[in-house]
Design a protein around this nucleic acid. Structure first.
Lengths: 119, 119
DNA sequence: ATATATTTTAGAATCATTCTATCTTATATG
DNA sequence: CATATAAGATAGAATGATTCTAAAATATAT
């Protein structure tokens, strides 16, 4: 692991939020002021391919990066904010339906977050 | 409904595939050669907001448009190709977990499509 | 110690999508 | 019917996240 890989991995896994590349960039910059945005892109891609982090893509907003530990996501339909939920694991059931080419799944649950609910 | 809305709606709902804006554009053009790409964008957006069609966003490839009738999607991890599956309806169970701010959900199942499997 | 591979930097390029301004068509009102 | 107003379509520029390319720096291996 390179310095940046380690640093970016740490930023993502120690954060309780779902960080965008820009947010990771801002964070890494505090320690390594000369880092460049492309380096963050390079490394989140590498970390994703290595299976150490996961990308969370929500339509219309920049991709976010997250720890891999199994969990699903709540997405606010109004503001796009992400939150974690842990719903029952569908793996076995899906593998049965799909067959042995099944790889993984992504469950996004749309809702109104508490803040948006008030409005 | 305007002429284009009707036409675009028809193209999407009569197709067995999951069409991109470009594909819809090509199709509509056959009947209305003077149509412009922005018109397709305007109208798919309007149709989505009206709840007559749904957008299917898969990371890294252009958005696709689909009929609304409840079903889930298989996404090939290798080529991005989409296919339909109908998995058990999780609505009731999710509403229980999430509460009454629950709106809807999106389940994507990643697999290897038959074509990619061969390689 | 030198060659080779990997990583980073810098900035240009890409490309789906949105936006703005203008023109056209449809609808409503007197 | 004529004119006003709203809605839709066109054309093309703008946006913005992400990727790509080429060069520079750093690390690894022989």
């Amino acid at each position: 692991m390179t310095t940046y890989e380690r640093e970016i991995y740490a930023v993502i896994t120690t954060s309780n939020e779902h960080l965008t590349v820009e947010q990771i960039f801002a964070e890494v910059r505090k320690t390594y002021p000369r880092v460049v945005l492309a380096t963050i892109y390079n490394n989140v891609n590498k970390l994703c391919k290595a299976g150490l982090i996961r990308r969370v893509s929500v339509e219309g907003i920049p991709d976010r990066y997250d720890r891999i530990q199994k969990h699903d996501h709540l997405v606010c339909r109004r503001c796009g904010e992400l939150a974690d939920i842990t719903f029952e694991d569908l793996t076995a059931s899906l593998r049965e339906t799909v067959g042995d080419t099944f790889l993984s799944y992504d469950l996004k649950v749309f809702y109104l977050c508490p803040r948006c609910r008030k409005k």
